[in-house]
């Protein structure tokens, strides 16, 4: 554990809590892609199957359970509790275009051809692209509420901090997880354009982010 990794995990947690609180307080999931949230729930489910097989640390176990619970709570709020506010019209990204290549890739590239390892690899690849329905939705409607952009900011910050964590781990313990690092870098690149818009529009005091 290093400071980048811890800060990254905290950013991830903050992002998820921001989104959950936004939906709960406003009693609405307008502007939120339910598809992205379903994909994230699938990411956590397929990655954290090792909760039942290996014990790493109390921190690891607790965080996994919290991420799983919060992601399912988010999906519940969007598709059940506040489903009448869900903007399915604009959440029109074709998820099969992500799932099919990701499933294919995880069968091609993995550390071991076991169900657990293939599912872990699937979760890593899927996480890299799971935000695309949300970014697509913002592009389609041309705007995002500032609270939604704060969510995306913390999610992107988490990814950037994980890269710092990998650089640190490579130099201090020789750790290098090729699958995680390559897809992590790809994932972070998706946020770069958004980061630029966030800093130039939202931070400078506009309530909504409108695309140019």
């Amino acid at each position: 554990m290093n400071v980048f990794r811890l800060a990254g995990d905290v950013s991830h947690l903050v992002a998820i809590i921001i989104l959950l609180l936004k939906i709960w307080r406003s009693r609405s999931c307008a502007g939120i892609s339910g598809k992205s949230q379903l994909l994230f729930a699938l990411v956590f489910t397929t990655r954290y199957l090792d909760l039942f097989t290996v014990y790493i640390s109390a921190y690891n176990t607790i965080m996994k359970v919290v991420f799983l619970a919060l992601s399912y709570a988010t999906v519940y709020l969007i598709y059940m509790r506040f489903r009448n506010t869900y903007d399915s019209e604009n959440d029109s990204f074709r998820v099969e275009f992500l799932l099919v290549p990701v499933i294919g890739l995880s069968f091609l590239e993995h550390y071991a051809f076991t169900p657990m390892e293939v599912l872990w690899t699937f979760s890593i690849f899927l996480e890299a692209v799971a935000i695309m329905p949300q970014l697509f939705m913002i592009t389609k409607t041309g705007e995002a509420e500032s609270i939604t952009t704060h969510y995306l900011f913390f999610l992107g910050l988490y990814r950037a901090l994980y890269i710092a964590n990998w650089v640190w781990r490579y130099h201090t313990e020789g750790f290098f997880d090729q699958i995680a690092v390559v897809s992590g870098v790809v994932q972070t690149i998706f946020y770069c354009d958004f980061f630029y818009l966030y800093v130039t529009k939202v931070v400078q005091g506009r309530s909504k982010m409108s695309l140019p």
Partner: peptide
């Protein structure tokens, strides 16, 4: 089941 890769990151 220790043959699986130990993934210690979240």
């Amino acid at each position: 089941l220790q043959d699986t890769h130990p993934h210690d990151e979240l």
